[in-house]
Design a protein around this nucleic acid. Sequence first.
DNA 1: TTTAGCACTCGGGAGAAAAGAGTGCTAACA
DNA 2: TGTTAGCACTCTTTTCTCCCGAGTGCTAAA
Lengths: 349, 349
Amino acid sequence: MELSERKKQILKAVVEHYIESAEPVGSKLLAQELGVSSATIRNELAELCELGFLEQPHTSAGRAPTPQGYRLYVNELMERRTVSAQEAERIDETLRDKLTNAGGAMANAGQLVSSIVNYPAYSVKRGNAALTVERFELLGVDERSFITVVMTSDKNVRSQLQQTALPFDAQRLGNLKHLLNTHFTGKSRAEMSTRLMSVSEQLAPELFLVVSKTVEYAAQVLDEAGRRDVETTGASRILTMPEYRDMDRAHELMTFLVDNKEQLPVPEGDAPLQVLIGPENVDAALRDTSVVVASYDIGEGMRGLVGVVGPTRMDYATVTARLAYFAESLSKMFGKGLPGKQENDNPEA
Amino acid sequence: MELSERKKQILKAVVEHYIESAEPVGSKLLAQELGVSSATIRNELAELCELGFLEQPHTSAGRAPTPQGYRLYVNELMERRTVSAQEAERIDETLRDKLTNAGGAMANAGQLVSSIVNYPAYSVKRGNAALTVERFELLGVDERSFITVVMTSDKNVRSQLQQTALPFDAQRLGNLKHLLNTHFTGKSRAEMSTRLMSVSEQLAPELFLVVSKTVEYAAQVLDEAGRRDVETTGASRILTMPEYRDMDRAHELMTFLVDNKEQLPVPEGDAPLQVLIGPENVDAALRDTSVVVASYDIGEGMRGLVGVVGPTRMDYATVTARLAYFAESLSKMFGKGLPGKQENDNPEA
DNA sequence: TTTAGCACTCGGGAGAAAAGAGTGCTAACA
DNA sequence: TGTTAGCACTCTTTTCTCCCGAGTGCTAAA
């Protein structure tokens, strides 16, 4: 059944007041706002309650939205705001300031979002499990150490200094490099391991030790790049919100954000923006929080993910607008002006 | 004036009870513990109050230690425990588990300590401002991109892929590398900048662009290595402590730990363990918290730093014992079994 | 110097009462 | 038929009071 126009108006007003005050809203306030009597409003409110959009904490209290109420609000009622010029300016500035400095964009994204929307936030680095090593390089340093350089198939480069038990001259290093590049490039982690075993038979033990160490390092690099990585920030912001006056609730959510961050929602589709309200979250610990999550383009067909976590009474209009703008800006930044990829995926000034 | 033996005993008992219960301790409990009458204890307590070691929240309450009381306790009264065998085992295990995985030791140290002592903790990566580039390497990838490898004077290696506007063949790359290694190694950040300017005159503009970009990257690497870096973890642990029942206090400390972590105490001397009690902290935000901070050896004359933050009612005996043991273990791990340095200073399995 | 005894202080908890906010229902009204 | 005014009712929150208990300081005796 479609709600009457007035009911929608009332529901919208209730949601917005509740979002602002965190307190059940009564008929009086609404009456004066909509220009009808409080009795009329009360009739409507009672019906909205029966329909499941509103609820009363107790008999003689005002109404608060149910998750279903928020859902309708987000889907239909909420004005789809775009950020104001000042907000845009502020976000752009934050982006410019922080992102050009050292430090991975992913790690920072959550932090930035959190400061932009004033809720806890998280960012997800999606791992690429299909990554392989594209090229090995070995640079001699002295007799017993050399630099291993590994370039992965997504053009990231990493390197480490490696000590060896036996002396390595330039020629040996060349041979080793050739061996690595012929046997261990373009291989998955698992393939690298099996290949390592088959190679072990053909090599002197001391040499094999060096090969295995180098391959191990490469595997480690791939692991790290392939790992899905979730970072949360701004968890302490919830302490200012009335729903987290209760220490236990606050503590529960905060420890969840820190210790179980891997379980934060990571929607599959490429929807630019997604809102999960209360019980729509699969994880029990999030059953009375809402999550807004946006994806952004990091180039080369890859997408990053940032999300915001807050009470169901979250300011959806503002959060969605700002988050959308943020994701858009970030996509743009990755699209252009990226001269080359660096170790930590951080774009260069 | 030196305190009588009995006064010390009483003070010690008060501190320990208060540490455990967070509630002012009365004469009755102490009387029964020390085998004298409560009246006697009361006299002693009154004197300890006058001397500034104890205080009363209000007239008819028990006594709680003042910072001065804690200080005496830590300096003289506290039994200098060593960790029990189980504790040691647990710490060793935690260390083995976490530290061998990917991820910098410094970043992890705080996290480990926090889980070991059950208070918020922080770790400091001391920057080395005197760092220079020891060696540049350039590895051609294709016509318009090459890998820059930078080895710093502390034998760390970092690398990035770099795009160029004009095509670069092997010979040009060789020249460029030679130029970088003759002009920009062993130089401080500032020197590198001035050297860059003087070099600019002798080079074609397109070539200079590439040089400057590479040098900029090197500078960035030095910056990052030179930056003092503080990481905090476990801030949410305070929410279970009675002194942070008050949301405002909890919020204040938590935001401080997140946003102002650079202001956490970093003692200068190489004392293995240092305790800062309440107002002994310079920072106002820490005036009613205590900090225990330990330094550990990361080899090559460098020292790392880990600290614990908690209420003045911190369990000093346990914390100092565990932290000392942790720092010692960490030093040992860095001392041996470190085959070579990696990018992130993480020891290899 | 220690102890028993006692009057006193103060915070915290239990109720009771009052205040306040908001409701549902009924009856009148346009 | 939808809207409104009025009113009794419900339930929470706040305030006030009272009382209890824990603990003290002081005094006088051992």
